[in-house]
Design a protein around this nucleic acid. Sequence first.
DNA 1: AATTTATATTATAATCGTTCTAAACTGTTG
DNA 2: CAACAGTTTAGAACGATTATAATATAAATT
Lengths: 142, 142
Amino acid sequence: MLKNSEFVNKLRNSGLRPTKQRLKICEVLFNRDKTFHFTINDLAKNISENFNEKISLATIYNTVHAFKDKGYLKEITISSDKSYFDTNITKHHHFYDEDTNLLIDCNDNEIGKVNIKNNITGKKISSVEVLVRVASDTQNQN
Amino acid sequence: MLKNSEFVNKLRNSGLRPTKQRLKICEVLFNRDKTFHFTINDLAKNISENFNEKISLATIYNTVHAFKDKGYLKEITISSDKSYFDTNITKHHHFYDEDTNLLIDCNDNEIGKVNIKNNITGKKISSVEVLVRVASDTQNQN
DNA sequence: AATTTATATTATAATCGTTCTAAACTGTTG
DNA sequence: CAACAGTTTAGAACGATTATAATATAAATT
């Protein structure tokens, strides 16, 4: 559990003013043992359920994007209609459970290094992402 | 180059009536040497530029989704604000050029098999997708 | 070939997630 | 504490996608 003052420093160090809305969002996102995978909607719901004061939806969008730009969150693209964010900012891959719509982080015990034999000439690799979609046996597959 | 009658059969065989709109879309999508990566917008633009008669946007959406459901197209998710479709329906991975916003198909010469060591218990893998984002050296990276 | 039925197309409206706007507010600096 | 830049807010605007319901077309039936 991080203290409030640590969030204040974190924000200040990246040029973001430590407003009470941002600190509240920090609490929700980063005061956790496990990685948190969420959509904007999840986060907004979480905040409105757990706190009396509400934060405007625009502020939630702004803050999540600011945190992403500062590298405190990663965006994970699963489908065009769902944008997930991940508090785990290390390089890693994901399982996506199509039954529950939950994301699960992978480490090297689950997915080995991706072997990129030839890259596009003149280009630099900015990221490598593996998404493994899983579903129970009875589900449709494509 | 496939003949019109082949598209008629293709559509009939999958329970889709071969309407003139669907046949036109088949022409645009499948009468090609190379894989076609497109957004709905790309497709709509292509049709309106190359033909006199126009197809309603709703029909383009319906048709693309019908073709996807029948397995004639694959949807590739790059980011939450862009939905790409791919006429290459074999298992393959992609490079995404962040400078040009173009998708490039990979084969086994570029990306080796992904080694999934442990899957989620009780679940079946429905797909494995690798997306390698590339950009020129001068670009920002994350 | 005419009739019936089911399916598809169309223009337009509705919806949904996200971004924009401009006014009010707050944190920081001097 | 005054001044300023940055932030929050509610609500409007936006853009992509989906729904609607009237019209049109393809296929099946007579």
